[in-house]
C-alpha cells in the first residue's frame, strides 16, 4: 500500500486547494498536486506523476510512467489501486 501509481495531470480543477484532474490508467480522478508544484500551478498540467492515495508525490517522465505501470500491473497493484479509487467514489455516495 506504499506504492504510487503513474498518472498524467490534465487540468487544474481547484487552484485554492491545489487540486487537479489526473488520468490514471484510463480513469479520471481528482488529485492534490501540492507536492510537485515548484513554480506556477498551471505548469504541472500535462506532466506525469506518481500518485499515491490522491496526492501527486513525484514528477516522473513518460517512459518511467509506462515502465512503472507495467511493473504495478505485474504485481496486481495497479488493479488494486483502481478498485480503491472506485471504492472511494462509492463511499462518498454512501454506497460502501
Amino acid at each position: 500500500m506504499c506504492l504510487g501509481i503513474p498518472g498524467q495531470i490534465t487540468a487544474i480543477t481547484d487552484p485554492t486547494r491545489m487540486m487537479a484532474m489526473a488520468e490514471v490508467s484510463g480513469v479520471r480522478r481528482e488529485v492534490n498536486v501540492a507536492p510537485i508544484v515548484t513554480g506556477a500551478l498551471e505548469d504541472v498540467v500535462g506532466k506525469w506523476a506518481l500518485i499515491h492515495v490522491g496526492f501527486a508525490m513525484a514528477e516522473i517522465d513518460e517512459d518511467e510512467a509506462a515502465k512503472t505501470l507495467e511493473a504495478l500491473r505485474g504485481l496486481g497493484e495497479a488493479q488494486e489501486t483502481l478498485e480503491a479509487m472506485a471504492a472511494g467514489d462509492a463511499a462518498l455516495e454512501g454506497r460502501a
Binding site: R29, V53, G54, F55, A84, G88, A91, L92
Partner: peptide
C-alpha cells in the same frame, strides 16, 4: 467506509 484517499474522508466531512 473504504476510501482511496484521506481527501475522500475530508469530502465526507464537508458533506
Amino acid at each position: 467506509r473504504m476510501v482511496y484517499s484521506p481527501l475522500d474522508a475530508l469530502e465526507l466531512a464537508r458533506r
